[in-house]
Every structure is written in C-alpha cells, then in structure tokens.
C-alpha cells in the first residue's frame, strides 16, 4: 500500500482563491469538450449585428443606437442562459451536493462560475464590439473600451441572474422559460425600442428599477460622449451593484442541507 497524504483538516473559508480558480478552470474545461457551444456563443452576437447592420442599411443612425444597445444586451442574455442551465445541471447531477459536502465555500462556487463565464463574455464582447466598430461602421463617439466594460458588467449580471433563477427551476424546460420571464420584460422596458421617458409613467417607473435599463443607458452614453460622463459612471456602478446583489442572493439559494 502506498503512503498517501491525509486530507488536511483546515476549516473551509467562505472564499478561497485557489478553490475559486480551480472551479473556474473546471467550468472552462467542461466547455472545451463542447466546441459547438463555444462556437454558438461567440458567433451568434456577431451574426446578429451583421444582420442588423444591413436591416438598417438605409439609416446608419438607427443602427448606431440599436447596435450599441445590443452590444450590452447580448452578453446578458447568453450568459443568463448558459449559467442557468449549467448550474441547474450541477444541482440535478448530484455534483452540487458532493461539492457542498466537501470543503468548498458557496462563494468559491459562485465566484468560480462568474470568473469562467466572465472570461467567455470578454471574448464574446471583444469580438462583437470589434466587428461592430471596425467592420460595420458603428459610429461610437467614446472609447470602445468603455463599451467593452459595460458589456462585461452585463455578462456578470446575466451570470448572476442565471445562477439565481436556476434555484427555482426543477428542469431544463423551466430554466429556459425563465428567459422570457426575466429577460423579455427588461428588453421591452430598457429603452431599446423607444426612449424610456416616452413610455407610460408607470412603465417608466418600472424601467427605473430594472438593471438592463442602466446597461443600455451606459452604452448610449459611450455612443454620444467622448469622455466618461457622470451618468456613465452611475450606470456602470448600478449594473455592477445589481450583479453583486443578485450573486449574493444566488449564494443564499445554495444550501448545504436539503430536504
């Protein structure tokens, strides 16, 4: 019999850097065995932007507005979907129960997922932004880096929302239905279709508390101003704050003991 290392009896902490990165690496490694998902994640936003550009072939002003908003909305939607399904699978396959019986902090798991999908979101957003700005002539007054920053925050928000709703879904069918339930109302109210101040006052008030409104607002700030405006900073902070809040709510839905 070989001599083996005994498990160290260090009490687990809420957040450990090495366990978080191990989790992120594992999630990304799972994806590398699924190249089709990666291809879809990266290509769909580009194809949609390409399509949009020629749908509004005659009015490039319209493309500027909608294109910039969509750069913020795509990462939110795709990360929402990917995360809700991935964490649901973790819950139903028993791996979540196994991990929580091990010295893994809930924060490690959530931060690991956020880190992995955040990385993916950076690649996705960088490609989509690059395509829009350099090849589809999206006319951005501000820095494309700021567009990328908002896109990344949106992706984090999507990851957070996906993680959170997966707790309320018992099957993949239900998880997918949460997409229209959680995302569509925000899509309608975020100012993509019509400026928010022209909506019915009640709807405008609702849109004021939905995080996607600030994501789109932030994108439009970059579109119109050369500098980082105070409104942009406010928008970015609100989106980041919402993402953090929902991530913490998501952590609360992970229970070590279940019935």
């Amino acid at each position: 019999m070989t001599t083996t290392a005994t498990r160290p009896a260090t009490p687990p902490r809420a957040l450990s850097a090495s366990r978080t990165t191990a989790t992120a690496a594992r999630v990304l490694r799972q994806l590398t065995h699924d190249p089709r998902t990666i291809a879809l994640l990266i290509l769909i936003p580009c194809v949609m932007l390409f399509l949009l550009r020629y749908v509004f072939d005659g009015s490039s002003r319209t493309f500027d507005g909608i294109g910039a908003s969509l750069l913020g909305i795509f990462p939110l939607i795709t990360m929402f979907l990917v995360t809700s399904i991935a964490t649901l699978r973790e819950r139903t396959s028993g791996t979540l129960e196994r991990l929580l019986a091990m010295p893994l902090g809930k924060g490690d798991l959530i931060a690991g997922y956020a880190l992995a999908f955040g990385t993916l979101a950076i690649i996705q957003s960088a490609l989509a932004t690059g395509l829009a700005v350099w090849f589809l002539d999206l006319d951005v007054t501000g820095s494309p880096w700021l567009l990328l920053l908002v896109a990344l925050l949106d992706a984090l928000l999507g990851t957070a929302l996906g993680l959170f709703v997966s707790a309320f879904a018992a099957s993949e069918f239900q998880a997918v239905q949460f997409m229209p339930a959680v995302i569509f109302p925000q899509l309608l109210l975020c100012g993509l279709f019509t400026p928010r101040d022209t909506m019915h006052p009640a709807l405008e008030a609702v849109s004021d508390v939905l995080p996607m409104s600030y994501a789109v607002d932030g994108m439009n700030e970059v579109l119109r101003h050369t500098d980082m405006t105070a409104t942009f900073v406010r928008d970015a902070l609100i989106v980041a704050g919402c993402a953090l809040l929902v991530l913490m709510l998501g952590a609360a839905t992970l229970r070590r003991r279940t019935a």
Partner: peptide, 29 residues
C-alpha cells in the same frame, strides 16, 4: 468535510470531463 468520503447513489461526476479531469478538480477542492 475533508475527513469523510461520500458516494451518492447516482454517480455525481461531470459527464463532460475526462475521468482524470474530474478527479483533478475534486482533489483541488
């Protein structure tokens, strides 16, 4: 949590990882 090994009835491993990758991850935890 580090002193008990637990196997659930249904195999709780990641189907989209290799055997070694599965073990590498849990070992890192």
């Amino acid at each position: 949590r580090t002193r008990i090994g637990y196997v659930t009835q249904a195999p709780s491993v990641y189907d989209d990882l290799t055997v070694r990758q599965n073990l590498d991850y849990f070992a890192a935890i």
